[in-house]
């Protein structure tokens, strides 16, 4: 149950839809305009509900603003530049903490549950700083799910990459707890994707295909860890695992290019 006022809800949703077509400065400007609109209409004696009812929905308002500004709906330069910064931040945080998680698993065996729990918590706190709430539509619950989804994906990718890039940390016996934590996170990830897609049908198809592929591949890799322990169909799973790592690494390159171009622009 959301406890946001109608005004807050409207502005929050508007900011979400604006993020597809406007840069951060323009978004702040537009949000400032609509904040002013609400305040003055309230001074004129209207309730927040009445003001919202007189305006179009946030999605339609954003659509009008987009058309008036002569923009396309999906402005890859703007959207990806914002996403690229956060993705890079999550990548490095995930890589560092993923590596630490593996080290803990290697050194302390099955007694690594609490250290891992602390690492996950630390990751969520650091990751939350990289994911501002206004990126997310809808209710407070939506924010939680959305953040959780991105954080789980980042942590999973970071852990896998840590295993590949920091081979000293890996060990055939490592990671039973790590695998369980990752699999739990990935299960949550799939549930959250379904939730997000129900809120975001327009952007959904692309995100679904990319994330499900990445998620499945990462899941396969974590199972590979189990197969290392049990010694069966290792090669097939390993192939999938390396494919997954390549996918995430490939995603890193456009992030860097976009960041570089963004600085120049």
């Amino acid at each position: 149950m959301s406890n946001h006022s109608p005004k807050e809800r409207f502005l929050r949703r508007l900011r979400f839809w604006l993020a597809f077509s406007f840069g951060e400065e323009e978004q702040a400007d537009i949000i400032g305009d609509y904040t002013e609109w609400f305040e003055n209409e309230q001074l004129a004696g209207k309730s927040q509900e009445a003001i919202c009812a007189a305006l179009h929905t946030p999605r339609v308002v954003a659509e009008h603003l987009r058309q008036e500004a002569g923009r396309g709906f999906f402005q890859p330069g703007i959207l990806l530049k914002q996403a690229a910064l956060r993705a890079l931040g999550l990548f490095f945080v995930g890589l560092g903490l993923g590596g630490a998680a593996l080290r803990i698993c290697n050194q302390s065996g099955s007694s690594c549950f609490y250290p891992l729990l602390w690492l996950v918590l630390l990751y969520f706190i650091m990751g939350s700083a990289l994911l501002p709430g206004q990126m997310v539509p809808g209710r407070a619950g939506g924010t939680l799910f959305f953040r959780g989804h991105l954080l789980a994906a980042g942590l999973s990718a970071g852990t896998i990459l840590a295993q590949l890039l920091l081979p000293r940390l890996t060990h055939p016996q490592s990671g039973v707890w790590c695998v369980l934590v990752l699999d739990t996170l990935l299960l949550g990830l799939v549930c959250m994707q379904v939730f997000i897609l129900s809120r975001l049908p327009a952007a959904g198809a692309f995100l679904l295909s990319l994330h499900l592929f990445g998620g499945m591949a990462v899941l396969a890799y974590t199972h590979n860890q189990l197969h290392l322990l049990y010694g069966s169909i290792r090669q097939l799973v390993e192939m999938l695992a390396y494919g997954s790592a390549c996918l995430y690494l490939a995603a890193l390159l456009p992030c860097l290019v976009l960041l570089f171009r963004g600085r120049k622009g």
């Binding site: 323009e26 400007d29 537009i30 305009d33 179009h56 308002v61 009008h64 603003l65 008036e68 500004a69």
Partner: peptide, 8 residues
């Protein structure tokens, strides 16, 4: 929205 865009 039209007028705010013109103003901006």
């Amino acid at each position: 929205s039209t007028l705010y865009t013109i103003l901006r």
